[in-house]
């Protein structure tokens, strides 16, 4: 890559078609983004499926990991949503597995991180927002709107507070999607910038090559950080989904 000079660090986010497809005038090609969505699901689902194949009473390493993942999300749903959140557990679990494996697979060099696509994260956040709002409306009817009225606030302030609450409610899908997208975008851009820097400096040749050691070491550290961010952001996205769900089911 360095042979033709420094590439744009955002070039890695470029969508490339693998199989050209179109339907109803829209381009629905199977792309690198689609491929890694598929891989995240297949690797995640395949791991969980094969790890549980033997249904051991005393779990081995793989089954232990699969069970741990299940219990982790189950605990998250139980403690944040409560018992009536059980119906939504498969969705939350799928979401977590999808994001975790998507983020992690994205860290492998030459792979693609579909969670760095704002349209993907926004679609998920938007779906969650709509679903949660509809659940709230179905469960509580018009009483659902009391959610926007803060309890125990002075009467004079209530109109302002309602405005603030409504805004913050509608900002939810934006903040939820942008958080994941921005973290992935920034992380991968940084990795690329430092990698590019290291390669560029090493291109200088001679004693100057040792200068590339610094960005290279930074790259190693950042990679570790990105692994953490990948897991953390999958967790944050999932737990916020649980909290929104809890708000809809229990209103405050």
């Amino acid at each position: 890559m360095a042979s033709e000079g420094m590439h744009s660090p955002v070039e890695q986010f470029e969508i490339r078609s693998i199989v050209d497809l179109s339907a109803g005038g829209y381009d629905i090609s199977f792309t690198n983004s689609s491929l890694f969505m598929l891989l995240a699901m297949v690797v995640g689902g395949g791991f969980l499926f094969s790890a549980m194949r033997n249904r051991e009473l005393v779990p081995g390493r793989m089954q232990g990991a699969a069970e741990m993942m299940y219990e982790f999300v189950a605990d998250m749903v139980r403690s944040n949503v409560g018992n009536d959140g059980r119906a939504y557990f498969p969705f939350v679990f799928t979401l977590f597995v999808f994001l975790l494996f998507g983020n992690m697979l994205g860290l492998i060099p030459y792979s693609y991180t579909f969670t760095s696509q704002i349209i993907v994260t926004f679609a998920m956040a938007g779906f969650i927002f709509l679903a949660v709002t509809l659940i709230g409306l179905f469960k509580h009817g018009l009483h659902f709107f009391s959610f926007f009225v803060p309890q125990g606030a002075p009467k004079v302030l209530i109109p302002f507070l309602i405005v603030i609450e409504v805004i913050s409610y509608f900002v939810r899908p934006v903040s939820l999607s942008v958080r994941l997208f921005a973290n992935m975008l920034a992380g991968h851009t940084m990795l690329k910038v430092f990698a590019g820097l290291a390669v560029m400096i090493s291109g200088a040749g001679g004693i100057a090559m040792t200068g590339s050691l610094l960005p290279f070491l930074a790259l190693v550290g950042l990679t570790g950080l990105e692994v953490l961010v990948a897991a953390l952001q999958a967790y944050v996205f999932t737990i916020l989904t649980c909290m929104y769900l809890n708000d809809a089911l229990h209103l405050h």
Partner: peptide, 18 residues
């Protein structure tokens, strides 16, 4: 459109499987 389409398809199938 392509990303949305494949997201819906893959997440949907993944959800059913899970």
């Amino acid at each position: 459109p392509s990303q949305l389409f494949w997201l819906v398809v893959i997440f949907g199938l993944g959800y059913v499987f899970m």
